[in-house]
Design a protein around this nucleic acid. Structure first.
Lengths: 234, 234
DNA sequence: AGGAAATCTTAAGGTTCTCTTAAGCAAAGC
DNA sequence: GCTTTGCTTAAGAGAACCTTAAGATTTCCT
């Protein structure tokens, strides 16, 4: 209760209907009527969950989800007149947490919003507690999530945006093995088709930049046949 | 590494169909055919996500979800032949994270499983705290499923990826006998044609690495004519 | 005690996996 | 329009792993 829900849909009636039910459920509703407006609002205020229609002018819903996932961890529910399974799979693959086909029962929307918020806040207390943890320091490396920068011995390491994202993913949970598939699908937000060379090239470049000896990596280890792991201790 | 998915449904065909798709997606599948079996399994082994049918003997799906939520934070997806909105709302309200009506497209199930796991593991690092539970300790051995590493007396044991998978399978349920056929089909995901030497070679190499005296194994016992068992107590 | 079956171990060759480099393409900036 | 930057793809090289085969060992049955 008391969460801020963004509703993004170019159909005014849809926005009003959902607002009615969500406000009645105790939420605060922010409305947007196209993709750009939604993008502005999600960047300029705190949004607890976004309900986004696919067919919107400006930025369509799929691209909006992709952009949201580059910057935000916010739960996202997609609404769509398309009920084709491949559309659902695409939306979920891009990073949406749920996908609802139109026409929908607003009570079900409310129930799904509750389920996502419960998962996000009650079951996982990450988001409120870990705002402090905006930097990660391991060995001589420091990753600053606020400025998206990486330092080695205090000197900034110049990474490309993909390199940074891959490194951030691995450093977020040191000790955890990530498969190439997981890395690809997380960073690119697309289905992994088995061609792992792209990920390996980026890994190689990251090692070049952060390791003393890229041929004998101390931080970014290969777990052959499985994937990669960022060491906890170096 | 794929995650461990529990599929609970009294319809064998449903379980087999979903297993096929989820294994293909890289997950490990645990099957249950009634509510009690599902409840036992979710309490006795690590389950990353549960897919639960509503109509099951023993404990029905709704009561199962309720019981799960009393003890576990595991993502839950409900399957149901009931597509009435009030059933969906009830299921989501009881603590399910998603609700899918039958008949369903298995590819959409896989996509929703991925979305839930992404939310649970990747987007919310809450699970960091729970990763402690991702280790199995038996005797002087410790297997860490998050980092895919095995330690003996605190020292990491270097295993190949197949060795690791075999050992993890056996350690997951100590005391249980696994036939060579089961081990092969589980690890390789192919039909076992009877040539058991490959499995035996791997078993031999694992013993070399984890036993004090590989000729007199304490952990990994041979049950002649049946298979292998990882001892509960050593 | 001997034979058969099951299991274990070792070595070698082939296969698979991973890494690195370079080149081409696309996008962005000047 | 040109240059720069970043990404993906392709190809080659090297290392690691797996499977297979063969001989040895162990266990069980007659």
């Amino acid at each position: 209760m008391g969460n801020t829900i963004l509703i993004a849909d170019d159909e005014k009636e849809i926005v009003e209907l959902l607002s009615l039910y969500l406000v009645k459920d105790g939420h605060r509703v922010i409305e947007a009527f196209d993709g750009l407006e939604a993008w502005d609002k999600i960047n300029s205020m705190h949004i607890d969950l976004a309900v986004i229609d696919v067919m919107m002018p400006g930025i369509d819903g799929y691209n909006l989800v992709r952009k949201i996932r580059e910057k935000h961890n916010t739960p996202v529910i997609i609404l769509s007149a398309r009920s084709d399974d491949s559309d659902k799979i695409l939306g979920l693959g891009l990073g949406a947490d749920d996908y609802m086909a139109k026409p929908f029962n607003p009570l079900e929307v409310v129930a799904r919003v509750q389920a996502q918020l419960r998962r996000f806040y009650t079951f996982n207390s990450t988001s409120k507690k870990e705002h402090k943890a905006e930097t990660i320091e391991i060995g001589r490396l420091k990753l600053d999530k606020t400025s998206c920068a990486v330092y080695k011995d205090g000197q900034e390491v110049q990474l490309t945006s993909i390199e940074y994202k891959v490194l951030a993913l691995l450093m977020e949970q040191p000790g955890r093995v990530y498969t190439k598939s997981q890395i690809f699908e997380y960073i690119w937000g697309e289905y992994f088709d088995g061609d792992d060379n792209t990920v390996m090239v980026h890994i190689s470049k990251i090692r070049d930049k952060i390791e003393d000896d890229p041929k004998e990596p101390k931080y970014l280890k290969t777990i052959r046949g499985l994937g990669y792991r960022f060491e906890k201790k170096v």
